[in-house]
Every structure is written in structure tokens, then in C-alpha cells.
Design a protein around this nucleic acid. Sequence first.
DNA 1: CAGGATCCTAAACGATACTG
DNA 2: CAGTATCGTTTAGGATCCTG
Lengths: 136, 136
Amino acid sequence: MTPATTAQSLLEGWQRGNVLAADCPSRPLLAHVTSRWGTLVMIVLLTGTFRFSDLRRRIPGISERMLAQTLQQLEADGFVLRTAFQVVPPHVEYSLTAPGQEAAAHVAALANWIEDNLTRLKPPAARGTDPETAKA
Amino acid sequence: MTPATTAQSLLEGWQRGNVLAADCPSRPLLAHVTSRWGTLVMIVLLTGTFRFSDLRRRIPGISERMLAQTLQQLEADGFVLRTAFQVVPPHVEYSLTAPGQEAAAHVAALANWIEDNLTRLKPPAARGTDPETAKA
DNA sequence: CAGGATCCTAAACGATACTG
DNA sequence: CAGTATCGTTTAGGATCCTG
């Protein structure tokens, strides 16, 4: 850590509009939104407001821990709005903020593009034997 | 491996257009393109054709291994075109395929959106003390 | 120059048990 | 119901050395 960590010096390290810089503030945000579960949570929330359990059911394979963690990140980032009703048993609803909806739209656009263009990419045969799957 | 692995039976496991299914074929593709370095490689390649060393220099912080691995994945997926000239010393050029450019455009759009909307998301104070950074 | 091989650390992830 | 705490496993990622 350098002695003079002023706003000025911080700005010197990365050019504005450069996601490539390792210390670009947008990197963690991008990471959260493009993370394994972050992507799916954003896509699901794009379709409505849901409770914790609803989200778990709609995202097959996600664990409680990962869902909670992902939601907290996205909330801290300002993508997700968490609304807790003070009742017992607890009732919490999750939805997208206004910026969250815009970001989610981009994420969904990418996901949809990939689905729609699967055949233009590598042929099914190649996809079946890629290193990821065949590593066993 | 089930006895009848027909196209039909494969289609039964996941509904078309559902990235949420754990076994959706688009998931690995999405994962590669949204991976830490995959994103950056795609964005850089969107601006032109580059050699291995060029890419390393343009993506600060990436290691040889990760660059090689990322490029191989993206090539296997059909996003990246690898052109090797048979000369010594070796000369290899990387560029985006046609579908790769479309995919990269989506990735870049998301990254740019985040940069442009940083201030609409959490205030700088919150970003400075998020769990990721302050975990030490 | 463009990687492959190897070894290692850190982080992500998952399962389970428990609590207000 | 909506999480937290803890633990163990798996994977991503990094450093280094080596080769065609």
C-alpha cells in the first residue's frame, strides 16, 4: 500500500472505462453478476419478485448457502432489493432494483444469445468430449 | 451412459431455452465467456487480432497458464479463431470468429453498462468496504 | 515466441446442523 | 421461513521451469 492513497492517485492507476485494469471498481460488480449463481439469480428475478424458498426451487442445484451469499452480494451491489416483513414466521421478498433490471437484461441477453446460437458454435460431438466433461 | 442416448432422450432432460437447468449445454459456454479472464479476453479480442504475448500485455495480471487455458476453452467453444503460422520462432494469432464477435459484443455491453452505472449502484463508501475487499 | 507440465495456494462451492 | 455456522471437498487460479 502506497503512502498517498488519494482519489487522485487512485485514478492514475486505471483509465476510466477500462475494465481491464485489475483495480477497476467495476470488476467485483461484473464478477458478482457473472458468477455461476449470480447470473441465474438475476435471470430469475427478471421475471418477478420471489421469496427465498421460491428462488431455491427455481434455481435447481443451488444450495442455501450459495443463494444467501449471492443475494447478499447482489443486494450490496445495488442490483437486488431485499424486503423483509416483520412477521413470524419470517417473510422476505427479493426483487431487482431499477439498475438491477437493466443489468439483468444484459445478462439475460447474453444467456439467450448463447442458447440460440449453440449450433453455430462447436458441433454437439465436440461439446460432448470437451476437457471439462471428459476429465474423469 | 444410458443405453438409449438419443437426441430425443437428451432433449427430455432440459427444456429448450432454460439456462437454469444444471445440465443445459449452454451452461459451460456461458461459464467460459463469463469467467474471470474469459470476459477480458473477449473484450480485448473485440478490438482486433493479437498474438499471445500481445494479449498478455493487454490483460494486466493474467498468467501464462490462464491465458493459454482461457484461449483453448474459447477456441473449443467456437468463440476464438487460432491461426498458427508455421515459422520459427512460433507466430500465433488470435481473433474472434463471427459468432464470437456477437457474443463478445454482449459481454462488452454488460461490462460497459456496469462502468457507466457505477454511481447509480452502491455509493463509493459501500464499495470500499464490501466483504470481498475487507475480508482480510 | 507460444505454450506444456508440474506443484501449490486460495477461493468457491456443497452438505449438514442449528437458530430467531 | 430465512437464514447462519461449521466443516470438508472441489475447482480456479498462480508461480515456476521446461521445450519445440
